[in-house]
Every structure is written in structure tokens, then in C-alpha cells.
């Protein structure tokens, strides 16, 4: 079976730029999958999505949607994709329902079908009472749901969602997550670009992490977290009693099973001489290390005020791969 999205050795260099925005990117998205495309700002996500949705012309490489080459046959590719951008781009001259109807007409959907689809989608997106509302009168969440409805009305094979929950309240966010979950059951492939790691972890079947225009890794969120060196953590808050922080991190790193120790600094409102927080990344199970950690601290007369098990998250994987530097 052909992949829903097939990208191979994709390169994009913008004119007047010294670097490739996308630099030999390759990945595949299976049909019916929810794929999270993650990466820092400027990593090349937007450019990649732009190429896949025919708006950006690649410099070289291959980009296929459902087997169709987006560069060679953009018109056919456009029937297979739909985009929900981060910024509202609804047609302000039309009301909510007309936005759906005209979009369906562009895509050649017959009169009767588009009317029933429009009503059904408005209903599903919780916008039934907003059918005749002007676009300018919709809230941020409503506009976004309308854009999702618009994207779905022409039966796309692949739906691109760009930062879908930015600026939404928790209710709207949950509603959106449920609707995205529905798409999986409907067999629609979703490519999600987001900075929200919890969202990516919750929604995605697999995630790909991009940086500097290259794919760093692709796997299920759980597998990525498990593969992180030191995927289990022990969080400790200690009273140094005069011992330097570096010394404490040093002696804890010597404990067998501890990968590395990170100094998280003093808790809010306290001085480093009073209290510091440490995170220990461990190789295997974190539980059995609680005893040795407590014992070692005790030996050196460092008072423990809190000791807890933590687990790594997708964010830790992301930071591990792309670094802490600001972009």
C-alpha cells in the first residue's frame, strides 16, 4: 500500500538564504495515522508542510501525497490534502455555512451532497447555531473549528493541522482533541505540527522530531521516551549544609545506574545555599535507586527534604535531541 505521505531527500533553499531550510528530509506517514511533526522554531516544519500542500516549490527531492508527486501534479495533490492553518484565513465575505459550501464547490462536490455535508460538519464541530454567523463574529475556537470543517468537506486523504490548540481555552482544546481522535476512526491521515509536547504525546501515533531541516528521529512517543538515556528520573530536593552543588551532583553521578545529574537550581523563593533541586536520570528502573541515593546523601551530611520518582516525557526527548538553546 502506498504511504499517505512519502518524503525522501527533500531539500528547500530559499533564494538569498545561505542555509537549506529543509536539508535532505525523509519520512513516511502511514495511512490513517496521526503523525506529530515536532521541532523548534525555524527547524523546517512549516516549509515541509508548505511543500506538501503545494504552496512551496521544493529545490530537490521527492514529496508524494497518496502516491501523487506534489511538484509534478499539484492539481491532483490539492484534491488529496487539506490544511488548517494557525492563522484564520476564512472568507470574510461569506457566512460560516457559505464558507463550507463554496469550498466544496471549488472541489466539485455536488449541490445536494455539499449542503448535507455542510450541515453535518457544522453540527459535528459544535457550530450548528453559528451557521449564518459572519466570520468576524466567531471566536478564535469557533473559527478554528470552522476551518477544520472546511478542510474535511472535500474528503481529503491527508489533513495538515498547524499548531491546532494555540490560543484555545481548555474546553475548546479537549473538544478539538476529541475531534482529532474521531479522524483516526474515520481513516483520515493527520499530520500535526505543534510545540505542545503534551498534545503531541497524547494525540500522535508516531512523532518525528525535525531540526535544522533534517529528521532526527521518528517513533511512537512511548518508544522515544524509553530510548532516552536515563528515561526514568529521581527528583531530589536537598539542604546542602555547606557542600557545594557541584560536589553533590558529582557524588550522585557515581552511584551505579545513574546516567547524569542535572542541577535544577533552588526552588522558587529560596537561596541556593538553603536548598537545591536535583534531577537524576537513571538507566533502568528508578525505584530501586531511591535507597542508595538517600544513603549517599546521608553519608555526606546533606539533608534530604524531598525525594520522588519522576518519569521522562516527550519534552525531555525533544530537549535532549534539539538542545536547550533559544532559537
Amino acid at each position: 500500500m502506498t504511504a499517505a505521505v512519502d518524503v525522501a531527500d527533500l531539500v528547500k533553499r530559499y533564494p538569498k538564504s545561505r542555509h537549506n531550510a529543509v536539508d535532505g528530509l525523509s519520512f513516511r506517514v502511514r495511512r490513517g495515522e496521526i503523525f506529530g511533526l515536532l521541532g523548534p522554531n525555524g527547524a523546517g516544519k512549516t516549509t515541509t508542510v508548505g511543500i506538501l500542500t503545494t504552496r512551496i516549490v521544493p529545490t530537490s527531492g521527492k514529496a508524494l501525497i497518496g502516491g501523487v508527486d506534489v511538484g509534478r501534479d499539484p492539481v491532483a495533490a490539492k484534491t488529496k490534502v487539506a490544511v488548517v492553518p494557525q492563522r484564520v484565513n476564512l472568507d470574510r465575505s461569506l457566512n460560516a455555512r457559505q464558507n463550507l459550501l463554496f469550498h466544496a464547490t471549488y472541489h466539485g462536490i455536488g449541490r445536494r451532497e455539499r449542503h448535507s455535508l455542510a450541515d453535518e460538519l457544522l453540527d459535528r464541530m459544535g457550530l450548528a447555531d453559528k451557521a449564518r454567523a459572519r466570520v468576524d463574529d466567531l471566536s478564535g475556537g469557533q473559527s478554528q473549528r470552522l476551518m477544520i470543517a472546511r478542510a474535511l468537506i472535500h474528503h481529503p486523504e491527508v489533513l495538515f493541522l498547524d499548531e491546532p490548540s494555540t490560543g484555545l481555552d481548555p474546553q475548546a482544546r479537549l473538544f478539538l482533541h476529541d475531534r482529532i481522535g474521531d479522524l483516526r476512526s474515520a481513516g483520515i491521515t493527520v499530520v500535526l505540527t505543534t510545540h505542545d509536547m503534551d498534545e503531541a504525546q497524547k494525540l500522535s501515533d508516531r512523532v518525528g522530531i525535525v531540526d535544522h531541516g533534517r529528521m532526527l528521529t521518528v517513533d511512537t512517543p512511548n518508544e522515544l521516551i524509553r530510548s532516552l538515556p536515563g528515561s526514568g528520573t529521581v527528583d531530589a530536593t536537598v539542604h546542602p549544609n555547606g557542600t557545594a552543588a557541584e560536589k553533590i551532583t558529582g557524588m550522585l553521578s557515581e552511584i551505579p545506574g545513574v546516567q547524569r545529574v542535572e542541577d535544577l537550581g533552588p526552588p522558587a523563593g529560596t537561596e541556593a545555599t538553603e536548598r537545591i533541586r536535583l534531577r537524576l536520570y537513571v538507566d533502568g528502573e528508578a525505584g530501586p535507586l531511591l535507597g542508595p541515593v538517600a544513603a549517599r546523601l546521608q553519608e555526606r551530611a546533606v539533608a534530604v527534604t524531598d525525594l520522588a520518582l519522576g518519569s521522562a516525557s516527550l519534552e525531555d526527548v525533544f530537549i535532549e535531541l534539539t538542545g536547550r538553546d533559544l532559537r
Binding site: T53, P74, V83, V88, L90, Y106
Partner: peptide, 15 residues
């Protein structure tokens, strides 16, 4: 500012 044209640019016809 409006970006409304994006919907037309993504309709199945050459740009």
C-alpha cells in the same frame, strides 16, 4: 492581512 486567497490557491486548479 486577510489571507482569504489561500482557500482559492488550494482549490484544485493551477495557480
Amino acid at each position: 492581512y486577510s489571507r482569504e486567497i489561500e482557500d482559492r490557491l488550494l482549490a484544485p486548479l493551477p495557480i
